[in-house]
Design a protein around this nucleic acid. Structure first.
Lengths: 233, 233
DNA sequence: GTCTATAAACGGATAGAC
DNA sequence: GTCTATCCGTTTATAGAC
């Protein structure tokens, strides 16, 4: 289908799709190289290892997509002219560059979500580093547009939203099943619109009057104890 | 630690924890049998296969938990005395039986979430059948408590909420990282309170005025086309 | 019921010819 | 750069002794 004739590029294309469809660990290099019309050794020659191939698949798309995300957020802030940017605008600035692309970008998007949910820590670490810059920028923008939400609550809600996004992207077929066919799980425009309205409402939810927000000393203590828990393993 | 002396029970205990911690596919029968102080053949003798062991781990907990879920929903509806049951009460009826249990139940809960997100269709199929009854009851109750939300929108939001839940349960450690240690990802009571308020707000979100809801003929068409898509593979 | 030993297959990585 | 052939570890599953 694609006009690429280069072996390296063909491997990236095939791996991207197969990883997205079945998961990284569930896809063998033999299966990839067979479908790409080459042989096992080609992967090690071009990418060094299976994880090298995974990383290359990520890098090919994530750089441009994340740059576009930042560009759109800048644009939204420019339009707001110092005023607050709406939650919905921020969410769209993050989601649209990944969703509105053609099918190739879509496969990588599914792969990213899969890797994010996978039990393999090495896989997730590869992703986290690629998202450092956008995570910082978008986290700050979202927090600024939610002045009434304390930091702790904010992070919880961000986590919930990330879970919604990943699950929806990865398990679109499941949604078709539980809805009896009412919902199309593979329509990116639909994911976008529904998720933005759901997520914005969840992020804006009234803070439970019963919940005591951590004081700054509690924050310091929590950070210290989290460090301890992390190093323990 | 546990006082069980039976090999079969010991295998279930060890498998439950290791599956929850590292994932089913990532955990070898060798690792399980070694930690359980027995040998590889014991698994096949007691459970037939690795998937048989997974199913047995599910069944041991899911039956009682799902029964308790239905009991609590009945109780909430009885208290409401024919009136509407609040969204929050329904969500709590579903979540508390899985979360408020002791550590053993918690491990199985993590495992269920993991299996739900895993790329292995066989794993998910084992779960879906176990949840048929509760899914129907809770789906109907939730929909009844959200009279303004059209069915299509409702299923999308349910899907988002399931994603939030699974991601939070499975990737609690990640939340600690992105929050810089502010949030504790392994505190079930905290997951419960935060997720209920976030989810209820998301489910109640105003329906986008621009979105056209499917008419009943569209619904029939969607079901038919979904059937076609499913059988195609 | 529990064990040892082994089968049978599959995985990623690599050496070396071309 | 590309290929074949092979190494070596790991996996699940099973046969058969006790």
């Amino acid at each position: 289908m694609t006009a690429t004739t280069d072996t390296r590029e063909r491997l990236l294309d095939v791996a991207e799709v197969m990883f997205a469809e079945r998961g990284v660990r569930e896809t063998s290099l033999r299966g990839i190289t067979q479908k790409a019309g080459t042989n096992l050794a080609a992967v090690n020659y071009h990418f060094g290892s299976k994880n090298g191939l995974v990383g290359a698949v990520f890098q090919r798309r994530l750089g441009p997509i994340n740059a576009e995300r930042l560009r759109r957020l800048d644009e939204a802030e420019r339009v707001a002219a110092g005023g607050p940017v709406t939650l919905e605008a921020i969410l769209r600035a993050f989601l649209e560059p990944a969703l509105h692309g053609r099918r190739d970008a879509h496969a990588c998007f599914v792969l990213v979500a899969r890797a994010h949910l996978a039990p393999d820590p090495e896989l997730r670490a590869m992703l986290m580093s690629a998202f450092d810059a956008v995570a910082a920028r978008f986290g700050a923008a979202l927090q600024a547009s939610l002045p009434g939400i304390p930091p702790t609550e904010f992070f919880w809600r961000m986590h919930f939203l990330i879970g919604s996004l990943c699950h929806t992207v990865v398990n679109g077929a499941l949604l078709e099943d539980i809805s009896g066919g009412l919902c199309r799980g593979d329509d990116d425009e639909e994911i976008l619109a529904r998720l933005v309205s759901f997520g914005a409402a969840g992020l804006r939810a009234a803070v439970d009057e019963g919940a005591r927000e951590a004081s700054s000393s509690d924050v310091a203590a929590a950070r210290a104890s989290a460090r301890k828990r992390r190093t323990r393993r």
